[in-house]
Design a protein around this nucleic acid. Sequence first.
RNA 1: GGUCUCAUCGUCUAACGGUUAGGACAUCAGGUUCUCAUCCUGACAAUCGGGGUUCGAUUCCCCGUGAGAUCACCA
Length: 475
Amino acid sequence: MSTIRTRFAPSPTGFMHVGGVRTALFAWFIAQQAKGTFILRIEDTDKVREVEGSIAQIENSLRWLGIDWQEGIDKGGEFGPYLQSERLAIYKEWAQKLIDQGKAYADPYTKEELDAFRDQAKAEKRAFLFRDHRPENPPAWDGTQPLRFKSDPKSYQWHDAVMGDLSTGPEVVDDFILIKSDGFPTYNFCHIIDDMLMGVTHVLRSQEFISSTPKFLNLYEALGIERPVLATLPFVMAMDGKKKLGKRDGAKDILEYGKEGYLPEAMMNFLATLGWNDGTEQEVFTRDELIEKFTLERVQKSPARFDEQRLLWLNGQHIRSLSLDDLYERVADFWPESAASSDEAYKKQVLALVQDRLKTLCDLPTITDYFFDDPTPNWQMADDNKQLRKLTREEQVELLQTAQAVFETSAFDPESLQETLNQLLETTGQKPGILFSLIRLAVSWAPFSPALNDTLATIGQTAAIERLQKAIETA
RNA sequence: GGUCUCAUCGUCUAACGGUUAGGACAUCAGGUUCUCAUCCUGACAAUCGGGGUUCGAUUCCCCGUGAGAUCACCA
């Protein structure tokens, strides 16, 4: 049995974007590959920023990606509750221990007094430290004031599984707030208590926390608890500019990508290889390969840009690697309306033809519509075609009539049709560029389509002949 | 401003101190009896600058420069 336990601990402040999801993903990899436990804990200690429905959205986002957790609000577990607002008594208990040891005290200052201290520090061009203003005789903590940690300033050097050896001086260790005046703990305090009580062995979080790590180290010591493995992940940056990809910079809800026809395994592959690689030249990974091969040591130290082009390419790769049956299930919500009355066998036939052409599942309607609904002739398309332009309309119609006649007697499987089409090239003396383009247009009126013989075979003999007839009549 | 972190093609990245600095995306050019896509071939394209250490530096050290983070009763 493995002892590895990791967690993802988001706040319910809105939808999940790619940066947050990647942190969850890496933590999940670590747990999965060690057959350990992945915990989903919700950090709802800021009631002001909380957004209704966020928890369900977070859970749905993780599920969509294929990330599952063994302990969490919905799953339970022996270290619950997994919602921080239900753990207030626990935090109070640990806060009391610190008070009893003289390592925490009530903050007697008003906001105005605090601001004055800060302004003063700023005017003197030095960093503000609360511990410079520790009250000599703090009042007993009655829960209405903030409770502060009495820090023990010192230099730190520590190892980060991603960033390597890090160090700071004592000036960054300060008396931060453990419990707010509203009775809720701060992240700085409760995440440490929870990680300890939940037996978390590896703490993964994004880069913004690197500078507050010494504070955490100081608190670990004060509480006398062993610190977990720390891993700091670099940011995911917006493609344009050098800003961290955040909601205000256009970061999308991860679930949007599903609606836009991206496969979760493509997204997983993309996020994993954004700042990580296995040292080989492999680019496309399955979910199981990622779980097996992922290591924190090979995670990049520098931020990576979110390149949608690469995501799009990976999506195509994953779409092509799907079996037809699997793909068929995935595209259930993506068919054009015209496909509603078609049966499964026919839709699968069409799908097989366009599988190589899909970059996202959303491409399906535009590239398959004419397989389900008779297209409206648009002879302008013939006029715009460089090859077809060389022929007069009468010559074009004549060719179509010839083709129509041949199709009346041809077998309509792809192989026979290819023979029929080849014979047609000979009898008409035309080049494929002209003859095939013309027939292709007349049966599809689409800018592109699969190979002509496959297209004709799928549309079927009756419809193909009818469409040629309609083309001839409207010429 | 203090503190901390980072730095290889446009982008994601590879390279025990010794390679013509490799691969992928994107772009461009060809090929696959029509189009689009797939697939294949090829082209373009990078070690931030300056000092050291070393026979030899993308790699180690220092100084710059640039970028980012943090300094909340947010996480």
